[in-house]
Design a protein around this nucleic acid. Structure first.
Lengths: 219, 219
DNA sequence: CGTACTTTTGAATCGCATCAAATCTGGTGG
DNA sequence: CCACCAGATTTGATGCGATTCAAAAGTACG
């Protein structure tokens, strides 16, 4: 089953040229769709370079991209790490890229032209508001993640994750506990142990790729 | 030289009525300034309530506000915690508040009417773009904070903080190390110990309320 | 001078990271 | 179909670093 291919797409319409990620197809006005090229970067390749004039921003579909900058003593400082979502949004408003973007795993992305995106936003206020809505969701998600990362036990982080990102106390594990561990900022070993101990306690149930948080009668 | 007071504001215009926080005055179009009331909430007071129709969003100037929601077993889940910045931005696009907002310390805020903000954004695309720019900065800042919170030693977090939020390796401590410890998500004891050990190592210098990261020749 | 708060140091404890290794899994090719 | 491999999963042992609790010293303010 191939999930949502976007508004303008459906099985009876062929769209040979580009397979825009769903979120993006839903967000961007149609005249921009054709201008967004699907691109791939091998591990270690650079998407853009600090100091250069911004021409594109990117949307990571699969893979992993980091934004980094050189620190004071030459070591690179990682500003962010994205496995799915926008990269280089800040370049929308600046004359230069302020950091390097690099694929740290083989990645497939959509490449979005900044100039056209910007002018679309200036002329189409409905689109601009939709963009603001998307940013608000992102901000909300990130704030919840910060709140979660401030917790200093795996158990509390996991519960918070399921409560906030899950639906009705049920959270789907994308590709195993290992990736969930990364999202929680803990080692996979710690997460395995935490899950199994919570299962023993009857707090949690693991069921075909989903984590179910059980109501605790002693709450 | 006091930098940009905002496009619509200048020294010859007096603004007796309200002292909008700088960021806000710079961001909002002038016709909205008068509509933003400065408000105070004592510790424990609610700014808004889940389920109600959104009328206002807020900008925290001083104090601390949390957004929370009831979890599955009745305990409240904290979604975010803001000591300075916007609260309830999400309500810009939703028919109901999705969480409760509460002042957890005596707080002073600006109260911004959502309807007027929204229509300003629809009609003034320059303002909308400025709002997008503000959100982009927020997203960037939050992503850096997540990156930082993923580090599992106080030392690395502190270095990252100074490198990313500081200027030229120098980071101003707002009100003591204690508040910095909160931002880093560690106890103040741990931060004190970390700072003093880094000072002994010659990595760090503490100077009238600022932390200076020293270039390490052995990098 | 006393009160409240921050800063600082100390000691004990606990949870997670780390390193290691065994088991299980799906997929590939002989 | 089976042998084999790469990756995910799971369990174990150890050590370190942060939390926690405690207390002393410094500092601002009325």
């Amino acid at each position: 089953m191939r999930r949502n291919r976007g508004w303008y797409d459906s099985d009876h319409m062929k769209r040979s040229e580009s397979t825009l990620p769903f979120v993006l197809a839903e967000l961007l006005p149609p005249q921009l769709h054709a201008l967004c090229a699907p691109v791939s970067f091998g591990k270690g390749k650079r998407l853009f370079e600090i100091g250069k004039k911004p021409a594109f921003m990117f949307f990571v579909d699969h893979g992993e991209v980091t934004l980094e900058r050189l620190g004071l003593n030459g070591a690179s400082v990682i500003l962010q790490r994205t496995r799915h979502g926008f990269v280089g949004e800040a370049s929308l408003h600046s004359a230069r890229y302020h950091c390097d973007a690099m694929a740290v795993a083989d990645s497939t992305l959509a490449r979005i032209p900044i100039r056209e995106l910007r002018s679309a936003m200036e002329q189409d206020s409905v689109f601009a508001l939709r963009w603001v809505a998307m940013l608000n969701r992102e901000v909300k998600r990130l704030r919840m993640q910060c709140e979660r990362l401030n917790m200093n036990s795996v158990r509390h982080r996991l519960i918070h994750l399921i409560e906030t990102e899950g639906v009705q106390g049920s959270y789907p594990l994308g590709s195993g506990l290992k990736s969930a561990a990364k999202e929680l900022g803990v080692t996979h070993e710690a997460l395995y142990r935490c899950v199994s101990s919570m299962e023993k306690n009857g707090e949690l149930l693991r069921d075909n790729g989903k984590l179910h948080l059980l109501k605790n009668p002693t709450a």
